[in-house]
């Protein structure tokens, strides 16, 4: 469960977040959309504590996160892309993570994402797609109650993307709170039940997908969003 109120963040002169509010409850998938530079990644990183907001409140599972790191036990995160140290082996990374989390790994998930085949490899030897598969697995690895996925399917191979979508659906059924950023309208309308559209650091649209569709009679989500934006 994520509650965000009045989040502000400026980097130098540019304003990344300008009073963003967001609520994402248990068992819901909240999709963040918006053009590049609208603040999606900054918002996600704020939830993770990577970006320290100037003002505003972020609560994860009911507790404010400021100055704390333990809450990240409940969070699984998949970044857009990440470079792991070249000499690090996949198996080593998994060991480090389970030592850090002191929690059981989801071995079935590891198999699902076809990780065992590359366990012995160093990250320097892996392709971009393979690295993303590892990142995807890591996000779900410790059965977190909150998932933050930054464009999760964009650089995954089609098979892994399908597994990913399946995992998202399942997690939602299990009562997780999931925040996804995406550029793909189809993907959003397929998976999400809420849409938050960001523009210049603000969330300008925040509605349930069904509600959005009902209001207009239009089926294509993209068109609905465009109309909505014009209204504003």
């Amino acid at each position: 469960m994520i509650e965000i109120k009045g989040l502000h963040k400026t980097f130098g002169k540019s304003c990344a977040l300008d009073g963003a509010d967001l609520d994402c409850g248990r068992g819901s998938v909240c999709a963040l959309m918006g053009p590049n530079g609208s603040g999606k990644t900054t918002l996600m990183k704020s939830i993770l504590g990577l970006v320290l907001p100037d003002s505003g409140i972020i609560k994860v599972n009911g507790k404010e996160i400021k100055g704390s790191y333990e809450y990240r036990h409940d969070i699984g995160y998949m970044p857009q892309n990440v470079n792991y140290p070249h000499n690090l082996r996949v198996s080593e990374l998994f060991e480090i993570l389970s030592e850090l989390r002191s929690a059981e790994k989801d071995e079935e998930l590891i198999r699902e994402f076809r990780i065992p085949g590359i366990f012995g490899k160093k990250f320097g030897q892996l392709s971009g797609g393979m690295k993303q598969r590892v990142s995807a697995a890591i996000a779900f690895l410790f059965r977190p109650s909150v998932l933050i996925l930054d464009e999760p399917t964009s650089s995954l191979d089609p098979l892994s993307a399908e597994i990913m979508k399946e995992k998202i659906r399942k997690s939602r059924q299990e009562g997780c709170c999931i925040v996804i950023s995406s550029h793909h309208v189809s993907e959003v309308s397929e998976m999400a039940d809420r849409l938050a559209f960001m523009l210049d650091g603000k969330i300008v649209i925040d509605r349930g997908i069904a509600e959005l569709k009902n209001g207009t009679g239009e089926i294509r989500l993209g068109k609905i969003i465009a109309e909505r934006l014009n209204m504003n």
């Binding site: 993770l48 990577l50 790191y69 809450y71 990240r72 792991y84």
Partner: peptide, 13 residues
């Protein structure tokens, strides 16, 4: 980048 990754885990700065 790796530091950034580590900081998404339950570990303090």
């Amino acid at each position: 980048e790796f530091i950034e990754f580590l900081l998404t885990q339950p570990i303090s700065r």
